[in-house]
């Protein structure tokens, strides 16, 4: 088994899905000749031809509209939005059109579309490139929002997303693209949607997170272990709809929870997680639920992002506060 970075795992996964199903089409700005601005589609056009992997004009609404039309003609589109900060340009096609087609047509049509986009901070991008806007779409019925936390999950979740007959927004944290490598099977495999994953077992406190924050939580858990606190790390993987069972089971076991998200606090995904715990596991709680999230400002200018972004130390501090409550 080879060790791959997340971006390579994604490229490999896309290639396998293109070959597996002749209806899969990969397209977007710069995904063809250039192989994507992060090289996530590197070599796919040469390998599979321009009919399957192609560049589009520069217009996000057009890209999603193209996907919807292609789905109606029987294709399985995998469009890329170059940076998720550009999603505002295509909110109608994603949230107003694609995700409600099954609903508004009484289930008579399907939208097997996987919209990929890089997101997340910490890589010193210009404005509106690094925002964590997943919460906007997590509130959209009919849409799955899937966020891997590393190379293995990325490839397996991507395969499941592309094969799903429901629309998926698949978000790839930019900091995870090349920050570490993991064993990734060369053969095709799937990781289930709608299933959270316990990345590390522990008995004293549950750290719930997704995307890059899973890595920070993991580091925090290792540090906490040295101080005798065994933290369980739960990776949501699909942030909408949520896997309530895994969250509740973990909290029931540990009796404590710190919810970690890179996005701003207000109306974030972890607000929903907190609500689930409050509704279904409150009697297991031995202390209040802790939150670690970004401050409620727009994503900051790059020189301030190290302070603005939540990190391992914030998680350690909050976890200790909750454990010692």
């Amino acid at each position: 088994m080879a060790k791959l970075s997340m971006v390579k795992a994604i490229t490999q996964g896309l290639d396998e899905e293109i070959k597996r199903d002749e209806k899969v089409l990969v397209f977007g700005e710069d995904v063809g000749r250039n192989g994507g601005v992060f090289r996530a589609t590197d070599g796919l056009q040469d390998e599979n031809g321009e009919d399957r992997v192609f560049d589009t004009p520069l217009a996000e609404s057009g890209i999603s509209g193209l996907a919807m039309g292609l789905a109606l003609e029987g294709f399985r589109p995998v469009p890329e939005i170059q940076f998720f900060g550009f999603v505002f340009e295509t909110m109608d096609e994603i949230a107003g059109q694609i995700s409600r087609t099954g609903h508004r047509m009484g289930g008579s049509r399907k939208m097997p579309i996987t919209i990929r986009a890089p997101f997340g901070g910490g890589v010193h991008t210009p404005e509106l490139h690094a925002d964590s806007l997943e919460g906007l779409l997590a509130q959209t019925p009919g849409l799955r929002v899937v966020i891997p936390s590393g190379p293995y999950d990325a490839k397996g979740l991507l395969a499941s997303s592309i094969r799903s007959d429901d629309p998926v927004v698949f978000l790839e944290h930019m900091k995870l693209y090349r920050s570490f490598k993991e064993e990734v099977p060369e053969d095709s495999y799937t990781v289930p949607l709608d299933k959270a994953d316990v990345k590390r077992e522990g008995k004293d406190i549950t750290l719930v997170s997704y995307g890059y924050m899973v890595q920070e939580s993991w580091k925090a858990a290792d540090a906490l272990a040295k101080e005798g606190i065994e933290a369980e790390v739960v990776d949501l993987r699909t942030i909408s709809p949520l896997d309530e069972e895994t969250i509740i089971n973990s909290v029931k076991k540990t009796g404590r929870a710190v919810l970690v998200q890179e996005a701003q606090n207000q109306a974030g995904v972890m607000g929903q997680v907190a609500s689930i715990i409050a509704e279904k596991a409150i009697l297991s709680l031995e202390s209040p639920i802790g939150r670690v999230s970004a401050p409620d400002t727009p994503y900051p200018f790059s020189q301030a992002e190290e302070i603005w972004l939540p990190n391992k130390n914030d998680i350690i501090e909050k976890a200790k506060e909750i454990v010692n409550y």
Binding site: G65, L66, G69, D92, E93, G96, Q97, M105
Partner: peptide
């Protein structure tokens, strides 16, 4: 809006213009 499978149509569009980008997609599929 529950259309027969063979019917080549979407229901009436409410968001002005949204059907134009979708048409580009259907046409590319064709």
């Amino acid at each position: 809006n529950k259309y027969p499978e063979a019917m080549q149509a979407l229901p009436p569009q409410i968001i002005i213009g949204a059907q134009y980008v979708q048409t580009a997609g259907v046409a590319l599929g064709i």
